[in-house]
């Protein structure tokens, strides 16, 4: 087998924390893009869920890095808050849909100054 012109990068035994952080950043940015660009309230909600999950991923990555459980427990609380947020938010969307027959956030701009 001929020698490679460059040394092969050393493959780490486990996935480094930076990889998880970068992936979390990518997912968070994608969720943020969804919130900015989409106009359906439901899709914006799903993008927010995506951002919450990206943050959860970095919480767990840091918990592994530091060898503590606190990060994982924070993920529990984030999940509970996300569940509450989804319940109330979907109820608000349903209520708006009943009164305005739309789930488009551009049509719900009563507060626009």
């Amino acid at each position: 087998m001929p020698a490679l012109p460059f040394p092969l990068p050393e493959i780490p035994a486990t996935v480094p924390t930076e990889a998880y952080l970068i992936l979390s950043g990518i997912l968070f940015a994608l969720g943020c893009t969804g919130v900015i660009l989409r106009k359906s309230a439901l899709t914006i909600f799903m993008s927010i869920e995506l951002m919450l999950n990206a943050v959860n991923l970095s919480f767990v990555a840091f918990a592994r890095q530091l060898g503590q459980f606190d990060g994982q427990i924070f993920v529990f609380f984030v999940m509970a808050v996300a569940a509450a947020e989804v319940a109330v938010g979907l109820a608000i969307i349903i209520d708006i849909f009943r009164s305005r027959c739309t789930a488009d956030i551009d049509d719900v701009s009563w507060l626009k100054g």
């Binding site: 924390t17 930076e18 998880y20 952080l21 970068i22 979390s24 950043g25 990518i26 968070f28 940015a29 970095s58």
Partner: peptide
């Protein structure tokens, strides 16, 4: 975000 993560 990627820069911060890669600098970790």
């Amino acid at each position: 975000l990627v820069a911060v993560g890669a600098r970790y």
